[in-house]
Design a protein around this nucleic acid. Structure first.
Lengths: 146, 146
DNA sequence: TCCTAATCAGAGTATTTTATCTTATTTAAA
DNA sequence: TTTAAATAAGATAAAATACTCTGATTAGGA
């Protein structure tokens, strides 16, 4: 089971991060992405297709084609990806699964969870892909490098 | 899609919270629980069966049977429930889905996510059901009351 | 021009999760 | 002692998610 996001969404975040490490406009093939990220080939194809339709990525068919960010990395946040794939439920959902949970009618852990959730929301929406890429290029980071 | 935990786990947390509101040892039927919590009858039956096998609950068959906490509510935390149903992945898992993510080989958001995750872990493991029940009995709380 | 390496698109399959059905068993109360 | 109200347990169904396959289209390069 995945934790915060669906598999699809996790894969999308990974792929988009990888694209952000490349110079603007440079096309990266599904082949390269799936090899590097260990994601099933056709599954990633589908996911990226979706992001093209949502105008987050662009793609070129044919020989030496591939995918690239549609916008400058400064203008894309993780949350932009998350909401196109998993929707916006992240901002509202109760941790215990109560549908009617709110500050007027809270569950036993409503306030604390809301606090953590807001911090996470800030993390995902407040930083753009350029900042992410910078962080990944610093010496300590090793998970995703060109 | 559920967020932090599986549906099963959410239902279990709801049910166990409801049991904690009752006097120690008082049996509550599946019927009452599912009515009160709007959980599918047989599905909750299965879930509670599992918690009985894990010795978190006790059950009595037959007329006026039902379920109750196996231990004093002071000795049960949300995390006790979570780990029997969803396992312990919550404590380790990377938000971006990288399997090799760690402080030695972190992803772009590793540190911040770890911080939030630890706070959440404290929330779920550091408070017991008695404290939860107290919180739920205070005036402001309305989601779950007897 | 023709071949090959790509994505595109949609259908199809597999797996996991969620939910239901059915029958058996237990037990308190009438 | 009978009956009704419970849980136990296994089988099955439905839905959601994850993944695969295939054929079409596109476009660069030999």
């Amino acid at each position: 089971m995945s934790l915060l996001f669906s598999r699809q969404c996790e894969y999308a975040l990974q792929a988009v991060s990888y694209l952000a490490l490349h110079p603007r406009g440079r096309l990266v093939s599904i082949r390269e992405l799936t090899k590097r990220l260990k994601i099933p080939y056709h599954f990633l194809g589908k996911i990226l297709q979706g992001l093209v339709q949502k105008r987050i990525l662009i793609s070129h068919k044919g020989h030496s084609g591939g995918f690239a960010l549609a916008l400058p990395p400064e203008d894309i946040s993780f949350y932009d990806i998350i909401k196109t794939i998993d929707g916006t439920q992240f901002k509202h959902q109760c941790a215990m699964g109560f549908s009617e949970c709110s500050s007027e009618s809270p569950c036993a852990i409503h306030d604390q969870w809301e606090k953590s959730r807001n911090e996470l929301y800030k993390l995902f929406s407040g930083r753009n892909l350029a900042e992410m890429a910078n962080a990944m290029n610093k010496p300590g980071y090793r998970t995703l490098k060109l």
